[in-house]
């Protein structure tokens, strides 16, 4: 089989430096604009976590901590982590929609790096994490959550969570590229996120859990992230948890980002 097209002398379109960075940023901007223009896309990082906070605090607060105020202090840093991690799921779902709608065909026919559309999506969705943290800070403050450490330390907790979520979102990118439909992406992401976020001391102290579950909580990277966030916002041990969270982040990024880019190249 041969397909031969002979055009005029090949005109070299301009090639500028740092292409991948500029292209990724242009595509990140695209995601950002789309998200801000469809605010219902942000429900999962605004209203939804607020409802969860209300449910947990008023349903479990008395039983777990004796009163709702103390429970809120215990819950909020951890539920912030959960919300931000769940927020990354949308990256995979949106990516999958873009690919099946043909929007990415255009990008793939352009002289840009293969990874640029993926990096763009992941970067653009950082806004979702920021919105999640902001929304929980507001509801937390209203309900009586008080940072026991310092503002910079609490901000550090947010940043650590965002770094972890950024790295984890490459798993969702991979799922989004590989799966046939957006429903499948969402289902798979839920299956991954439930044990990761609920298999922790998020809603109740680890000591009250059965042994096998405690064993999982011990090794679960999200436990380390939640404990680090608690430490940074309420005081207590931080260093080892934070180091583990960062080690896991680097590991996820190193494994899943290349896998996702490879899968994207191969997808017809």
């Amino acid at each position: 089989m041969t397909l031969t097209l002979t055009p005029t002398a090949v005109a070299a379109t301009r090639e500028r430096r740092f292409g991948l960075v500029r292209h990724s940023l242009a595509l990140a901007r695209r995601s950002l604009v789309k998200t801000l223009r469809t605010p219902e896309q942000l429900l999962d990082v605004t209203l939804q976590p607020i409802i969860f906070v209300l449910i947990y605090v008023f349903l479990l607060g008395g039983a777990v901590a004796g009163n709702t105020h103390d429970y809120l202090q215990f819950l909020l840093p951890a539920i912030m982590v959960q919300t931000v991690l769940f927020g990354g799921m949308a990256t995979g779902v949106n990516l999958n929609t873009d690919i099946s709608k043909g929007v990415f065909d255009r990008f793939r026919s352009l002289p840009i790096g293969r990874s640029a559309p993926l990096i763009g999506s992941v970067l653009g969705d950082l806004i979702r994490y920021v919105v999640a943290i902001a929304s929980l800070s507001v509801i937390g403050a209203i309900m009586g959550f008080r940072i026991q450490t310092s503002l910079p330390s609490a901000i550090l907790a947010g940043l650590l969570t965002i770094v972890f979520a950024f790295c984890l979102s490459w798993v969702f990118v991979l799922v989004g590229v590989v799966m046939r439909g957006a429903g499948g992406v969402q289902g798979t992401a839920f299956l991954l996120l439930f044990p990761l976020t609920f298999g922790t001391s998020m809603i109740t102290p680890k000591e009250t859990l059965p042994g096998w579950l405690q064993a999982w909580v011990e090794v679960n990277p999200v436990s380390h992230l939640m404990e680090a966030a608690r430490g940074l916002m309420l005081g207590g041990p931080v260093a080892s948890h934070a180091v583990w969270a960062l080690v896991w982040s680097a590991g996820m990024l190193a494994v899943f980002a290349p896998l996702a880019v490879r899968a994207y190249r191969r997808r017809a």
């Binding site: 031969t4 043909g102 352009l110």
Partner: peptide, 28 residues
């Protein structure tokens, strides 16, 4: 094999992308 302007679409894909424009069957 397929070539566009003497460029192989697999081995020189990046160069091919500099000289083509695509309007697919479904608006993208």
């Amino acid at each position: 094999r397929a070539t566009v302007g003497g460029l192989d679409v697999v081995r020189q894909a990046a160069k091919v992308r500099r000289i083509i424009g695509l309007t697919g069957q479904y608006a993208s």
